[in-house]
């Protein structure tokens, strides 16, 4: 019970940080530019963005999706009681954590110039948060696996 709640809370917090960190806490370059959603939607409707977006903008977008997914996995951890299912959820979160780690580091990346906010703030923050997701869920998988084995032996 305690493990279920703890893992669930940690995953929800880390997922939210991965999702919102690049937008609110460690914003990527130009995220607070005077561009409203309406203007963005208009640009997309027109078929092409007027100005090329920086790499880090797309990293923030991708991390938003992955972060939400990790937070949802955290909620499912809380709802589902079966240990076998929770092992599966944790493995899913590990894979998402790996993706969250690879996106700013290799798959999309951040801006190429030193000293930019996305490089000195967003990149280390996302690396830490996604590494924590991987570590916490790996420990949880081993813990649940051992617990299940013990239960089977006692049965």
């Amino acid at each position: 019970m305690k493990n279920r709640i703890l893992t669930s809370i940690i995953l929800i917090i880390l997922g939210s940080l991965i999702a919102l960190g690049p937008i609110v806490i460690f914003p990527v370059c130009g995220i607070h530019a005077e561009e409203t959603e309406h203007e963005m939607a208009k640009e997309i409707q027109e078929g092409a963005m007027q100005q090329a977006k920086m790499k880090c903008f797309w990293t923030a977008r991708a991390e938003l999706g992955i972060g939400i997914l990790i937070a949802i996995l955290g909620v499912l951890h809380f709802i589902l009681k079966s240990e076998q299912l929770r092992i599966g959820l944790s493995i899913g979160a590990i894979l998402n954590g790996v993706l969250a780690l690879l996106i700013p580091n290799t798959l999309i990346g951040v801006c190429g110039k030193a000293g930019m906010m996305c490089r000195i703030g967003t990149l280390p923050a996302l690396t830490i948060f996604s590494s924590l997701v991987i570590i916490v869920c790996t420990v949880n998988v081993f813990y649940l696996y051992r617990l299940r084995k013990k239960d089977l032996m006692n049965a």
Binding site: A114, G115, R119, I120, G121, P124, A125, T127, I128
Partner: peptide, 13 residues
């Protein structure tokens, strides 16, 4: 360490 080392450039700036 999770704050002072990875964010050293941010602290510096």
């Amino acid at each position: 360490s999770l704050v002072v080392f990875p964010f050293s450039d941010l602290i510096s700036s």
